[in-house]
């Protein structure tokens, strides 16, 4: 067959490329929020209810310099990542089983419909009974909060893989785990990615809530504990500094990790969902 000529490409103008990106819009929106906050807090003039942004930032700075906030944040992140990784791993194992066998399929369907609606925090009392106060309890509720939404998203993604693509994979003689890993997972990656995102948000939320509820011993407490103790000491600016940290970490994970992951996978493959 004769060669099809390569397409000719023209580079878009530089200015256009800058303005097409989203970062500058985000920056404008953030600046707007900051301005509204600052103005409202000054007008309210009640540091106990709503500290100004300036006061919050200096409390944040002080907490960072004293080493307490980084310490608390690290404690929380360590637990968070452990729980998240475990939850994703169990979800992967469950959905693989579900994709390969009818029993696994039924089991996953039943388990997710039973446990997905159950708020992770509701399991905390049970966790405390089983594991006592401490990290294992936190990890238990974290796994629960990550596992079901991720499993549900993965499995939904598997089901949506076009039958032509499945046949193309089986045509090569693929079956079992290899078929799941090399065909189903990449084909379902848009859904898996959004499942991972949801799981991450759930995990973060659950962890802070759990730390708020049962503090843990002061020595090893995380960010939730930092917020809780600051409130108890009526240091509202520190409460806000703690909340700000939670938000910032969320923004970084979403804006850097998940965005990059999306760009180098589903966007490049032309599979991005609308």
């Amino acid at each position: 067959m004769s060669d099809i000529a390569a397409p000719k490409l023209v580079r878009a103008p530089a200015l256009r490329r800058v303005f097409d990106g989203t970062p500058w819009r985000r920056a404008v929106i953030l600046a707007g929020f900051a301005l509204i906050w600052e103005l409202y807090a000054r007008w309210l003039d009640n540091a106990l209810l709503l500290p100004t942004m300036g006061a919050t930032l200096s409390a944040l700075w002080a907490a960072i310099v004293s080493g307490e906030l980084p310490d608390r944040t690290l404690t929380s992140l360590r637990v968070l990542i452990t729980g998240y990784a475990l939850g994703v791993a169990v979800a992967a194992a469950l959905t693989t089983l579900a994709a390969l066998s009818r029993w696994g399929n039924e089991a996953l369907g039943l388990l997710t419909s039973m446990f997905n609606p159950l708020p992770a925090i509701a399991l905390l009392p049970v966790a405390l009974l089983w594991f006592g106060i401490g990290t294992p309890s936190l990890i238990f509720v974290l796994v629960h909060s990550v596992l079901w939404p991720v499993a549900l998203a993965c499995y939904g993604g598997f089901l949506a893989v076009p039958s032509t693509l499945r046949m193309a994979g089986r045509n090569l003689g693929l079956s079992g785990g290899r078929f799941v890993v090399e065909i189903l997972v990449p084909a379902a990656f848009p859904q898996i990615l959004s499942g991972l995102r949801i799981g991450w948000a759930f995990a973060w939320r659950t962890l802070i809530a759990a730390e708020l509820v049962f503090g843990v011993s002061a020595r090893s407490g995380g960010l939730g504990w930092f917020i809780y103790t600051s409130r108890a000491q009526l240091e509202t600016a520190s409460v806000f500094a703690g909340l700000l940290t939670v938000i910032l970490i969320g923004l970084i994970v979403e804006g850097v990790i998940f965005r990059t992951l999306t760009r180098i996978t589903v966007q490049r493959w032309g599979q991005e969902q609308a």
Binding site: T164, L165, M167, A168, L172, G173, A187
Partner: peptide
């Protein structure tokens, strides 16, 4: 009794290629 690479199928649908 099973699919295999000794019988390669070209399908009508355009989504038979691995998009990734």
């Amino acid at each position: 009794d099973a699919p295999g690479p000794d019988r390669m199928t070209v399908f009508q649908e355009f989504d038979q290629l691995l998009p990734w």
